[in-house]
């Protein structure tokens, strides 16, 4: 995140305007990514097939990376390809691709993750601010904690039920036949 990137708002707006074709099934993802790599200044290279569960998100991310700011720089092909190939799998398993178009938080998360993968930070933010905000929105990290919480929450839920019953019994005991 050592370099300044585009303003975050331009990226989130671009995601919100993602064409429906990018969300439709059956698109040739590898071809889209191949063209993207060329537009980002890369050379003709073979794009390995993407796993089925990641294809939707890869398409949305490809739409994001096709932003004029990235294309004009003509130096992001390699990190972009690496991110698309390996950086989105965990996220794709947790969040449906259309959420990154329709949900404001997820749009911001994907835009920030994209910038971080390219070694950039949003325009006008410090590295610390960018890292802090990305951490706040990080779905993968949150899911890991939630999975850890699940066992604890199950116990807490049983405890809550027990406490609820006890409270009801105590309330009942307050009254006695007149």
């Amino acid at each position: 995140m050592s370099h300044q990137g585009p303003p975050l708002e331009t990226l989130t707006r671009r995601l919100a305007e993602c064409p429906a074709a990018f969300l439709a099934e059956g698109a040739h993802v590898e071809a889209v990514v191949f063209d993207l790599a060329l537009d980002l200044g890369g050379e003709m290279t073979r794009v390995a097939p993407f796993p089925a569960e990641a294809r939707g998100l890869v398409l949305v991310a490809a739409w994001l990376l096709h932003d004029p700011w990235f294309r004009a720089a003509r130096r992001f092909a390699a990190p972009a390809l690496a991110w698309l190939q390996r950086g989105l799998d965990a996220l794709a398993r947790l969040v449906p691709a259309d959420q990154f178009v329709h949900d404001p938080d997820r749009r911001e998360e994907l835009a920030r993750a994209c910038l971080a993968a390219l070694g950039l930070r949003p325009h006008g933010e410090t590295e610390a601010q960018a890292a802090d905000r990305l951490k706040t929105l990080d779905t993968v990290a949150r899911d890991r904690v939630v999975q850890e919480m699940r066992t604890r929450e199950q116990r807490a839920r049983e405890l809550r039920e027990a406490m609820r019953r006890k409270a009801a019994e105590e309330a009942a005991a307050r009254w006695s036949p007149e």
């Binding site: 398993r93 969040v95 959420q99 949900d103 779905t139 949150r142 899911d143 939630v146 999975q147 929450e153």
Partner: peptide
């Protein structure tokens, strides 16, 4: 919504 945060409850 958002993430698939598990089906514990």
């Amino acid at each position: 919504g958002g993430a698939s945060l598990g089906g514990g409850e």
